[in-house]
């Protein structure tokens, strides 16, 4: 896995973005950027050559599930790996995210170990399919 890959962290709470950013740094990923909802994240993704998207679900203006759908509908972004990190825990929501093409789903509250495990798994698959 490329430790220099560019990661976008999307969450409406700055503290959660900061926690994820710190956990990622601890895992060796320092090339990160932040957005506070899907609406601001989408143009960043379209113009920013990101390699990985970590997004919350429940955000104002544009939710994470809508952002995921927009990413999958965009010719340039459609194969971007997406990890959802969210407090949303309804089975229907997880199924919906899976159907929309999410690559991993982490429920809050989560641990550093879970985040690492999911990221490793996602890139294991991405690399295997290449």
């Amino acid at each position: 896995m490329d430790k220099n890959m560019k990661i976008l962290i999307v969450d409406d709470f700055s503290t959660m973005r900061r926690i994820i950013k710190n956990l990622l740094r601890d895992l060796g990923f320092t090339n990160t950027a932040e957005a506070d909802d899907g609406h601001t994240a989408l143009p960043m993704l379209q113009n920013g050559n990101f390699d990985f998207l970590i997004t919350d679900w429940n955000m104002p203006t544009m939710t994470g599930i809508d952002l995921l759908r927009a990413v999958r509908a965009d010719a340039k972004l459609k194969s971007l790996p997406v990890l959802m990190v969210t407090a949303e825990a309804k089975r229907d929501q997880i199924i919906e995210a899976a159907q929309a093409g999410v690559n991993g789903y982490v429920v809050k509250p989560f641990t550093a170990a879970v985040l690492k495990e999911k990221i490793d798994k996602i890139f294991e698959r991405v690399n295997a399919s290449q």
Binding site: W57, N58, T63, I65, A87, E88, A89, K90, R91, D92, Q93, I94, I95, E96, A98, Y105, V106, V107, K108, F110, V114
Partner: peptide
Amino acid sequence: PDISPEGPQIKPETRVDVVSGQDDVDELL
């Protein structure tokens, strides 16, 4: 299905339509 955001589940054990943790999510996926 209702996929509107609900925020954190305070008592996941009292509902059948929500997962009770990461293990449940992994199992479902």
